[in-house]
Amino acid sequence: MTIFTIDEVTKTFTNGEVDEQVLKGINISLREGEITALVGASGSGKSTILTIAAGLQRATDGKVLFEGKNMTDMNQDQIRKIRASEFGFVFQSSHLVPFLTVEEQLLLMLDVSETKLKKREQQVEVEKILKLVDMDHRKDAYPASLSGGEKQRVAIARAIIHKPKMLFADEPTASLDSKRSKDVMTLIRELTKTLNITTLMVTHDEDMLTYADHIITMKDGLVLT
């Protein structure tokens, strides 16, 4: 079942007097519970389409439909609410909040998503997810004391703690070595399948494509396959 549709999306950046069209009518459909990988050379527009889909920037034209609702017609606060409760993000850098412990990072995300879980249930949920990403032994650690791989695992935990319907991952393994990259991708795959999360992922790394259900190749602002 299609949960997310990108329909004829274009994006034009204005640089001084010069208009540069980086997306030239993109059409993508994402099915529930599947991982779709966006690949392509630098400048092909894959990160731009990911951030538009995630509601982090607006398309110049076209529609972005999430569960049938057109996000391009929504105001900033409506998009924020969707980002907080229905979407999860994993970026190249972990972007953890430096003054929160691992456990607090996840509790914050539950708080932001306006979860209906009670305090005790939140605690149980956090412990469960931290076990899933094998970080339960570091729950009181601050980001500064974590390794790159650990940080990224916490970022993944934070992205899924509130059980989002969509996960957006922008080169989630870019800052990791090949072993850690495989671990992280295995984890993303396991979690998205277990929790039935639809994932849109940008990657440069061909080794990571084995974890995807679908691969979309982009070139010069267009979808090739």
Binding site: D77, R83, F87, F89, V97, V112
Partner: peptide, 12 residues
């Protein structure tokens, strides 16, 4: 940077 990340996560 922190404010930007918190906003991206959906903090009002």
């Amino acid at each position: 940077g922190l404010y930007g990340i918190l906003k991206a996560l959906g903090v009002k």
